[in-house]
């Protein structure tokens, strides 16, 4: 229970950065934290005490594995997170080149 709650705290820290910070880089860091929190929560839910990683080494013995389904889902999500982060940072770089600031309040003031 405590491990799940600390994942949720990381999610809320990321959401705090997105909602209240005015610096664009801090907002991008908040998005990255939310992605980590969800990925870690999935991997922790699939954990089983005393089990092994889901790789078959002996065929004749009964298998005792951790849940492979959340791992397969998260593997896709991690790679997609990299793509979204890269695209977001490129847009942030373009905004900086145009307005010379990361402050979203300043950007809102400058028209055009």
């Amino acid at each position: 229970m405590i491990v799940f709650v600390s994942c949720i705290i990381l999610f809320l820290i990321g959401l705090y950065a997105i909602v209240t910070k005015r610096n664009l880089i801090k907002i991008a860091i908040g998005f990255a934290f939310i992605e980590y929190a969800v990925n870690l929560l999935f991997a922790l839910i699939g954990f089983k005490r005393g089990a092994l990683a889901p790789i078959i080494t002996q065929i004749d013995k009964p298998h005792n594995f951790v849940d492979p389904i959340p791992q397969a889902l998260v593997l896709t999500a991690i790679v997609i997170a990299l793509g979204t982060t890269a695209l977001m940072l490129t847009v942030i770089l373009r905004i900086y080149n145009r307005y010379k600031t990361f402050d979203i309040a300043e950007i809102r003031k400058l028209k055009g």
Binding site: V74, A86, L89
Partner: peptide, 28 residues
Amino acid sequence: VHAPDLAIVQIVVEVLTVVIFVAVVLRT
């Protein structure tokens, strides 16, 4: 939590993420 595939992918992706962030910040 016995997820070696995830650990490998996460390390590669994390290195790339930090490199992209640093590239953006060094240009600005």
